[in-house]
C-alpha cells in the first residue's frame, strides 16, 4: 500500500470513528452479545452463567405461550399487510383525485402517525371502554356492545384498528408520492381511449406505483412483526397471555417475571431470523415482479 492510501484510510477512520464507537457499543455489541447469551443459561443478575448449547432454542420451540404469541403475531401481520396497504392505496388514490381540498385530507390522515401509539392507544381505550358502551346504550347496535378490550377475540381487532389508525397515513404519503410520479400523459391517453377510472387505476397507475408497493409491503412486514406499543397500551398482552405478541413475550420473559435473559435472547434471535428470512423472500419476489411490470 502506498503512503497516500495509508493517509486516505487514516482520514477515513477519523471521520468514521465517532459514529463507529457508538454503533459498536449500542448496536453491534448487543447484537453479538445477544447471540452469545442465547446459548447460555444467564439469568441477568448473577455474574455466573454457563453455555448450554441449543437448549434455549429447543425450549422455545416447545414453549406453548411463545408459539401462541408467534401465531398471534403472524395473524396480525397478515391482516396488517392486506388492510394497511389496501387502505393506504385507496386513500392515496382518492385524495389525489381531489382538487384543493386534498391538502386538508392529507393533513388529517397523516396526523395519527405523528403521535405515539401509547398516546393513541390510551385514546382508543377510552373509545372502546367508555364511548362504545354509551353508544351501545343509545343505538342498541351489536357492534358497540362487545367487550373490545376484555375478550381476546375482539381485542385482536381492537389492536388491529389502533395499528391501522396509526399506520395508514404513513404509507398513504408514500403512495401519494408514487402516484404523483405517474406521468399525466399516460392517464390522459387512457382516458381518451375511453378507459374508466377503475381501469386507469388497475392498468396504468397500479403498475407504475409497483416500486412503492414493494416499500409499503416491506415497511408493513417490518413494523408489524415488531408490534409492541399498541398491544402494550390496549391489553398489555392480556387477559392472561391471550393477546401476547412476540415482542411482548420477549419483554416479559426478560424484564417482567422471569429475568431469564439467556432464554429471552434465544427467542429474540428467533424473531430476528424470521424477520430476516421473510424480508429476503419478499424483496426477491417483489423485485422480480417489478422488473416484469
Amino acid at each position: 500500500m502506498t503512503s497516500r492510501t495509508w493517509k486516505r484510510n487514516a482520514i477515513l477512520l477519523v471521520f468514521v470513528l465517532p459514529a463507529l464507537v457508538f454503533y459498536a457499543a449500542f448496536t453491534l455489541a448487543p447484537a453479538f452479545g445477544g447471540m452469545w447469551y442465547s446459548f447460555t443459561d444467564w439469568n441477568g443478575l448473577g455474574p455466573s452463567y454457563k453455555a448450554i448449547g441449543l437448549s434455549n432454542y429447543v425450549e422455545a420451540i416447545g414453549d406453548r405461550y411463545f408459539l401462541k404469541s408467534l401465531w398471534f403475531t403472524v395473524k396480525f401481520v397478515l391482516y396488517m399487510l392486506v388492510l394497511q396497504n389496501v387502505l393506504a392505496i385507496l386513500l392515496a388514490v382518492l385524495v389525489e383525485s381531489l382538487g384543493r381540498s386534498k391538502v386538508w385530507f392529507r393533513t388529517i390522515f397523516f396526523m395519527p402517525n405523528m403521535l405515539s401509539l401509547i398516546i393513541g392507544g390510551f385514546m382508543w381505550m377510552f373509545i372502546f371502554t367508555r364511548v362504545f358502551p354509551y353508544l351501545a346504550d343509545k343505538t342498541g347496535w351489536m357492534l358497540f356492545d362487545q367487550s373490545w378490550i376484555g375478550d381476546p377475540n375482539y381485542s385482536f381487532f381492537a389492536i388491529l384498528a389502533l395499528s391501522l389508525w396509526g399506520g395508514v397515513g404513513y404509507l398513504m404519503i408514500i403512495y401519494i408520492a408514487a402516484i404523483q410520479g405517474v406521468p399525466k400523459q399516460l392517464k390522459e391517453a387512457a382516458a381518451i381511449d375511453g378507459a374508466h377510472a377503475f381501469h386507469i387505476f388497475r392498468h396504468v397507475t397500479l403498475p407504475m406505483i409497483y416500486p412503492a408497493l414493494t416499500i409499503g409491503v416491506f415497511l408493513t412486514l417490518n413494523s408489524s412483526f415488531k408490534v409492541f406499543d399498541s398491544v402494550y397500551a390496549l391489553t398489555g398482552g392480556g387477559p392472561g397471555r391471550s393477546t401476547q405478541v412476540i415482542a411482548i413475550n420477549i419483554y416479559e420473559e426478560a424484564f417482567s417475571f422471569s429475568n431469564r435473559y439467556g432464554y429471552a435472547s434465544a427467542k429474540a434471535m428467533i424473531l430476528f431470523g424470521i424477520v430476516l428470512i421473510i424480508t429476503i423472500i419478499q424483496l426477491a419476489v417483489m423485485k422480480r415482479r417489478e422488473v416484469r411490470a
Binding site: 459514529a19 448496536t27 409492541f228 420477549i250 424484564f255 435472547s265 429474540a268
Partner: peptide, 19 residues
Amino acid sequence: FVMSTLIPFHSIMITLVTI
C-alpha cells in the same frame, strides 16, 4: 453499518440494557 438495519430492536434490547 448497513448490515444492522434489519435487526429488530427487540433482538438487541436485552443486552443493550445490560451494557
